[in-house]
Simulated scan of single mutants.
Amino acid sequence: MRSFYHYIMTFRGVKQPEAKSRLADWIFYDHDFPKHSTNYAEISNYLEWNSPFTNALQVFDEVWDLYKTHED
């Protein structure tokens, strides 16, 4: 299973940025993000402490659901 980081990178680089791509871009530039993790709690806790924008956790939950569906 690939890491969540690798999955969310597929949302980067869009011409019309939206919440998923904003989160992906922020994660890309955050050197402390747990890039090898596949663990929901680890990533969620990290984002709770380092949230880049107001609804980042909600966006993370949406992308996490896509990630789990895609990786299963």
Rank of each mutant, 00 (worst) to 15 (best):
K35M: 10
P52N: 10
E18Q: 07
V59Q: 03
L47N: 01
L23G: 05
N55Q: 10
M1G: 04
L57M: 10
M1K: 12
S37Y: 04
K35E: 08
H6R: 13
Q58K: 09
E71P: 01
N39T: 12
R22V: 11
D61I: 04
Y67F: 15
E62M: 11
F4Y: 15
R2N: 08
K68D: 14
Y40T: 02
Y5A: 06
R12E: 09
A24S: 11
N39P: 13
H6G: 04
E48T: 11
F33G: 05
F33Y: 15
H31C: 03
F53Q: 04
F28L: 09
R22P: 00
L47I: 13
T38Q: 11
P52A: 10
V14W: 02
D61P: 02
I8A: 05
Y5G: 06
A19E: 10
M9V: 04
D32N: 10
N39K: 15
W49H: 12
H6I: 00
P17D: 01
A19I: 00
V63F: 05
R12D: 01
S44C: 12
M1N: 11
L47M: 09
F28Y: 15
W49P: 00
S51M: 03
Y46N: 04
F60Q: 05
S37M: 10
F4P: 09
A24R: 04
R2L: 03
S51W: 00
T38H: 04
Q58I: 01
Q16D: 08
H70Q: 13
F33S: 03
N50F: 08
Y40V: 02
I8E: 14
A24H: 02
W49M: 08
A19G: 04
A56P: 04
T54N: 05
T69N: 14
K20C: 00
H36V: 06
E71A: 13
K20Q: 01
T69W: 12
L66N: 09
V63Q: 13
D72Q: 12
F4I: 06
D61A: 13
D72V: 13
H6Y: 08
R2Y: 02
M9K: 08
H6V: 00
F53W: 03
F11Q: 12
